[in-house]
Simulated assay, not measured.
Amino acid sequence: MNIGMAFFGMPPVYNRKFDKAAPSRILEAELEGRGFTISRADIASSGDLEKALSRFRADRIGCVVVFLRHWTRISLVAGLVRSAGVPAALYAQTSGGFNGTTALTAASAALRETASGYFADSHKRFREGMEEDLCGWAAAADAYSGLKASRLMCWGGFYGADMPYTRSDPDALEGMLVREVMTEQEEVLTGRADQILSAGDKRIGAFLSWLESSGMKITEDGAMVTGAVLKKQASLYIAARDRLAELSDENIRGVSLKCHFELSTTLWKCTGCFLPAFLPFFEGPEGPEKPIPVACEGDLNGLAGLVMLHALNRSVPPLFGDFAEYRDDYVLMRNCGASSVYWAGCSDSG
């Protein structure tokens, strides 16, 4: 996670050099302790601003923090935030006889009262002593910037099983959250899965053996759960992993699969529940895997929620479902299909 930190000096007329304050070191230590890599820039002139912008772009920062301890050229602060193109925060030093609050309020007013763009309009403000809050904001801002450079894949398109709440606007989602919503028909997966089955791919047996060795008990009922069905499910999962490997350069952060009714009753005659169960998991029969959040039935709203949650906490797969309501004493989720097997035991390895 890369974060830009800009230190603004006094205007040149004051003829004073930069003096890094203790609060800045405290803030930097907090951020680095949370896993951030800091790209630093000192800005006192227009030339410094252009150099800082070039450095931040080269370092691919996910957000920028403006450190203010005294009066500075407010136009330079506004220019940085407007041009950086990432979430921005203003941070004021208030100790040691300095009053960064004056510069912060002036910079905030300049950003709010002029046509500055979304990130400038929505900037956040912090003061000394709010380092923990700023670190939380930085984590969310970095997650958002990462999503803006990512893509979603919807196998089978959108709006499945006649459930209206799965209907959404991919153009709007591309405008506010991700770079692109991609679509492919289910045949991209089922065709590969058919080939895997007909070829007697050894990975099917390896996958099912891995399930048993991990402690999973499979009870066949002779109807919905049979050896043939399990092999179909496994082959579709393997096909999905293969396809995602081919698309590794696309930076796909989440996928959805539209089962009903094309996949379940016509095209494949089997649901694809192994995808939401095992794609968002850290391990597979061949070792560590990259967890990929999965929604079902072309639920683009639910998928957006899943990738946001996973971006905030990459160490835990998100629960499967779309958040409908949240209160202190309960969470209501809309859910159709399987969920990551991680939650069966809250374990990375089964």
Rank of each mutant, 00 (worst) to 15 (best):
W155V: 12
G160Y: 00
Y159N: 11
R151F: 01
A172E: 09
C154E: 13
S116N: 12
S39M: 10
E174A: 15
K51M: 11
G85S: 09
S122V: 13
R55I: 14
C135K: 01
L147N: 02
S116C: 14
A89T: 03
M163N: 04
E113D: 07
A44F: 08
D162V: 12
E50L: 14
F56S: 01
E50G: 06
D169S: 07
D171A: 11
A115V: 14
G175W: 05
V66A: 10
S168E: 13
I43G: 07
L76R: 00
T105V: 11
A103C: 02
D59F: 10
G35I: 03
D162K: 13
S39P: 06
R34L: 04
R82Q: 10
A78I: 15
S46L: 07
D59P: 05
Y165C: 09
A138V: 02
S145L: 06
S46E: 04
K51Y: 08
L134I: 01
H123W: 00
D133Q: 10
S75W: 15
L80P: 00
G85H: 03
Y118F: 12
A110Q: 11
T102L: 14
L134A: 01
N99F: 14
G33N: 05
A172V: 09
G35A: 01
T37V: 14
S108R: 12
D169N: 15
F98I: 07
A161M: 01
R57Q: 13
C63F: 09
K124A: 12
D48L: 09
T37E: 13
A88M: 03
A106C: 08
D162M: 12
G35Y: 00
T94M: 15
E30L: 09
D162E: 12
G117Q: 07
A89M: 03
I74P: 02
D48R: 06
N99K: 12
C135F: 05
E132F: 10
R125T: 15
G157L: 02
D48F: 02
T166W: 03
R40W: 13
T72A: 14
S45V: 08
E132W: 06
P170L: 06
S122N: 11
G96R: 01
L49A: 02
L31S: 02
E28Y: 04
T114D: 05
F119L: 05
I43P: 01
G160K: 00
G62W: 05
A106S: 12
D162Q: 05
H70C: 09
A78R: 14
M163K: 04
A139Q: 06
K148V: 09
D133C: 08
L68H: 06
H70F: 04
P164K: 15
G96Q: 01
P170V: 03
S145P: 04
M153C: 04
G35D: 01
L76H: 03
E128T: 06
L49E: 05
F98L: 06
A149L: 09
A172F: 10
V77H: 03
M130V: 02
Q93L: 13
S39W: 09
S54Y: 11
G96W: 01
A58D: 11
A138K: 01
